[in-house]
Every structure is written in C-alpha cells, then in structure tokens.
Design a protein around this nucleic acid. Structure first.
Length: 501
RNA sequence: CGCGGGGUAGAGCAAUGGCAGCUCGCCAGGCCCAUAACCUGGAGGUUGUAGGUUCGAAUCCUACCCCCGCAACCA
C-alpha cells in the first residue's frame, strides 16, 4: 500500500489562529482525507512553533510564563482545528521535550560534521525592537517602528554552512529532484539562487532565554530555523540519528504559504542535505488572499476570523467556500458577501436543493430502488467524466476545479430531472420512474463520495439520507466509484442540508 | 532597475496559441418534484494602451499606463 505524508507549516503561537493559517491547514486536510479515501497510508502533520523572543515578550506583557502562553495558544489552535474538522494525525509542538532533545542532538551532530561552526555575527541592531535588521530593511539607517538609528553590534554565535549547498540546490531544482510548485514560485527560487550568493546562516543567538540551549554552550540558544523546520522529522518520530529515517519519511507534499518560500525552498533542503536525508517529494507554496480587495490587517479592521466564519456558514461550508474562492496557488480575493453568494448558489440552490428534490421524488413510492437491468450509459459516462476531472484536479492541487466538477454533476442531475419529469412518470409509467429515480440516487451517492474530502459531515448526511451510511463508509473508494450496483432500501428525507442564508 | 501577481460583459472571476466561458445581477419563457429552488433562451465584450510575431493572439515578444501583494505585526 502506498503512503502519503503531508505537512503544514507549524504556526507561531504568539496569537490565536489566523484565517491564513486556516487556509493552508484546510487545504492540507482535504488532501489528507482524499488520500485516506483512496486507501493510502496517510499521515497528516501540523503543529505549533513555540520558541523565541517574541513569545517571551508577549508572555511577559500578559504576566504569565512563556510555557503558560504556549499551552494556552496551542490549545486554542487545537480547538479551532477541531472546529474546522482538521483530521491531523499528530499535532507537534516545538516545546515537546522529545522535539527539543532531537534538535539539540542534531545540532551537535552538525557541529561534529563541521557543518556548524562558531563565528561572529555582525549586524545592524535596533535597541527598541531588540532585533537585527538587514541594511535593506532600514530607511536611512533607521528602523521604521522606532525611527532610531540602528547600531552595529556583533555577537558570537554558531553558523550553518549553507553557502556550501548553493550549487547542489540549484542543480536539484533544475533537474526536478527538488520539486517546487507552482511554477512561478520555482522560478522565484531559481532566480534567487542564480543571482544571490548564499551566506552562512546564524543558527543560534545570545540572550534568548526561551529556546533550546546549544549543547555544551548554555550562553547560546538554537535559533528558529533548525528548531522549527525539524518538526517535520520529529513529528513522525525521528530521534535524530542519521540514516534511521522514519517509515513515513519523506513527505509527499509540504504545503506552505508563499511568505515562507525561501526558508522552505533553500534552508530546509540545505539542512536535509547536510544530514544526508532524502528530500521531500514536493514543496507547494500557495497564494495569499485579500479581503474585499484590501489586505487583511488589524488596523484596517477587515480581519476575518475562522471561528466566526464557521459559526456563520458551518465548518463544512466554510471549507468549501475557502477552497473554491480562487485558484489555489495564485493570489485571490475573498469576502463575506462573496461567501454568502457562493453558499446560496453552490450549496443551498445546488447540492442541497438537488438532494431534497430527489429524496422527495423517491419518497413518492414506498418501494425500494434496486439496480435496473438496463444501465443508463449516458448517466454512467457523465459520472466517469466527473471523477476524471475531479481526480486530476486534486492530484494537481486544483481544489477549485475539483469543486467545479462536483457542481457539474449537480447541474447534470438537475437537467436530467427536468428532461425526464419523474413526477409525471410516477403517474404514467411507474417502471420508468423507478429507473430514473435509481439513476438519481446513484448520482447522489457519487456526490456524497465526491464531497467527502471537502465536507465530511455533509457527505455523511447524504449517505444517511440514502440509507447507506454504514456500508459506504466501510467501502474503499474504488468500490464506491462503481456505477449501478448499490441498492437503496430506505430513503430518509432528513434535515435541509444547507438552509438558505 | 528589490521580488512577485494582476488589468477579460454592470460586479466578481475562468480560459497559456485554435469558435471568449462561468457565477451573481438584468429581460423573456418553461416546470410545478424541490430550500421562491430548477430548466431553456436572450441582452451585455473592439480581453488596460500602442506596436510586433503568426494562417490564427486574452494567451507569445517589445514598450508604456494603472492596481495589488511580499520585503516590516500578519499565511
């Protein structure tokens, strides 16, 4: 059986979950559910990044310990992911002692391999911000927040020999051994590697208390790069021993937002190469969205909260709305009013209304609906086309076209009803009515399968209405995709699937 | 020349070399099974501008105009 390991970035726990992070996580969840549905051995990892100065600072402001802050916010993440029905297999926290121990071990290992060495870090430091800036970030040598001149400061720290990997990385990307998608993002990384010289990277800092201590040097703390990135290995049980890679390694897909492309496209494989680890199969950086044409920001007050949206539309519908709003991989725009629009069009008037139509028509007759002798080849063919488009879309992470293929089937069924007029057949030709309704029930059964990764609960509700929830959930997808073999013995009208908003 | 995305019907978007499509809205009709839902037809476009390549361009090339994201809290 083939395996499927997928990761999201780990989110920084200085605040509660953000709609952007929810977007990434949701996309990963749909893929995880899709691959599970296909019967693959699937592992879905997400989690939180919990070390660093900023955490310590926020904790101090709130008069709690960093540990308490992390516990609170990590719990918040788990709760929101629960609301959104995120089916992760493991929630990794970088403050987990197992993770911390592994990171320290790897750090030491890289010192032993002479890939981490001690040096002097010199940079422009803003006392107000308590952080370093690059010359480019400063305006007139001043930090934009404090309007104060940054001073040149140097400190001892440990460096990672990233420079050593520049040519290898370039070659790996060119030869598609290190796959970055979509293409624009790949070009961006290639351009960077061609024109900029990679410098060795400071892998530790002085004076940061909230972090993992450098082995044998308690004055130094391991910096975010290696600490955060190694979650992808510690999360599946790696103990830090080179060569002994976990069974799930490497990931089939690592999903990230485009903001962290460089860390994941350059530093991360650099670390893996230094460890001799196989590289992930694919790195996919999705786009960002604006809200109502403006970037989401606290000061503009247009921030959408994932929990509130789930309250308004329901978690299942929200998943659908987020992923159908614009092409995955590109930038796009969302808004509440667009969501209302699409909810009513796709879900209430489309899928939900179709379900109700068919169920009511089926309930006219108290008989069971058994597979007819004559197969409707036209209907069957349509289902085949829908699955084809759907699978191709999901394999390319085109969620919006996968969703479009579902809408295609809904529309096909609506047209089919209109042309066959089963309410008339019921009075005139009961045998034909029986066949038409059977086809429609089969159509709905396929719709339940198709919507499963996107809207697991609504999908189950459809199965339930068809009286086949238990049996279908036991079936693998391959069996579920077969046309015209299922018997419908008990139809249940049930609740309205998507009440109009 | 910091990096990147975009400009297509009233609005929002799709279409990467081959008849310019979808959703909402608008107009006319059909149906009466359904959540005032569904189906059919129609109006609405010189695809930001100018030039070029091509049998053929929204799509490729050149120049220009305009909008936006990242670079700095934030995916």
């Amino acid at each position: 059986m083939s395996k499927f390991y997928i990761t999201t970035p780990i989110y920084y726990v200085n605040a509660k979950p953000h709609l952007g992070g929810a977007y990434t996580t949701l996309a990963a969840d749909v893929l995880a559910r899709w691959h599970r549905m296909k019967g693959e051995n699937t592992f879905f990892l997400t989690g939180t990044d919990e070390h660093g100065e900023k955490i310590a600072k926020v904790a101090k402001e709130k008069k709690i310990t960093p540990r308490q802050l992390c516990d609170q916010n990590a719990a918040k993440y788990e709760q929101v992911w629960d609301t959104l029905k995120i089916s992760y297999n493991k929630f990794i926290r970088t403050t987990d002692p197992v993770h911390e121990k592994m990171v320290a071990k790897v750090f030491q290992h890289l010192i032993d391999k002479k890939l981490i060495y001690k040096g002097i870090y010199q940079g422009l430091y803003c006392v107000g911000c308590e952080r370093y800036y690059t010359a480019k970030e400063l305006v007139d040598g001043k930090c934009s927040i404090h309007q104060k001149k940054a001073i040149t400061l140097s400190e001892e720290c440990y460096f990672f020999k990233l420079s050593k990997f520049q040519n290898r990385l370039l070659k790996l990307i060119k030869n598609n051994k290190w796959v970055i998608e979509p293409e624009e993002r790949r070009n961006e990384v290639l351009g960077f590697l061609r024109t900029e010289k990679l410098e060795d990277l400071a892998f530790s800092r002085e004076k940061v208390e909230w972090g993992i201590a450098v082995p044998g040097d308690s004055s130094q703390t391991i910096y975010v790069w290696i600490d955060a990135l190694l979650n992808y290995l510690s999360g599946i049980g790696w103990k830090g021993q080179e060569g002994k890679w976990p069974l799930n390694w490497p990931p089939e897909i690592q999903l990230i937002g485009k903001d962290i492309l460089r860390f994941h496209a350059i530093i991360w494989p650099g670390v893996l190469l230094s460890l001799g680890a196989p590289l992930p199969k694919k790195l996919y950086a999705h786009g960002f969205f604006t809200i109502g044409g403006k970037k989401m920001s606290k000061s503009l007050g247009n921030v959408l909260d994932p929990e509130e949206l789930a309250m308004t539309f329901g978690a299942d519908a929200l998943r659908w709305l987020m992923l159908s709003a614009f092409p995955f991989g590109q930038d796009g725009d969302i808004s509440q009013s667009k969501f209302y629009d699409k909810y009513n069009t796709d879900l209430s008037n489309g899928l939900g209304n179709l379900l109700r139509r068919v169920l009511t028509l089926a309930l006219k007759n108290k008989k069971k609906f058994l597979p007819p002798k004559k197969v409707d080849t036209n209907f069957k063919k349509q289902i085949g086309l829908v699955w084809q488009k759907y699978e191709r879309s999901l394999n390319q992470l085109k969620f919006e076209t996968a969703i479009a293929s579902i809408n295609d089937l809904v529309s096909f069924c609506d047209k089919y009803i209109d042309s066959k007029q089963p309410w008339r057949l019921f009075k005139k030709d009961i045998a034909e009515y029986q066949i038409v309704l059977y086809n429609l029930l089969e159509g709905l059964r396929h719709l339940a399968w198709l919507t499963q990764p996107f809207m697991p609960e609504k999908s189950n509700q459809i199965f339930q209405s068809l009286g086949i929830l238990g049996q279908e959930k036991k079936n693998p997808l391959a069996k579920g995709q077969v046309w015209g073999k299922t018997e419908f013995k008990e139809i249940i009208l049930g609740e309205i699937l998507f009440p109009k908003l």
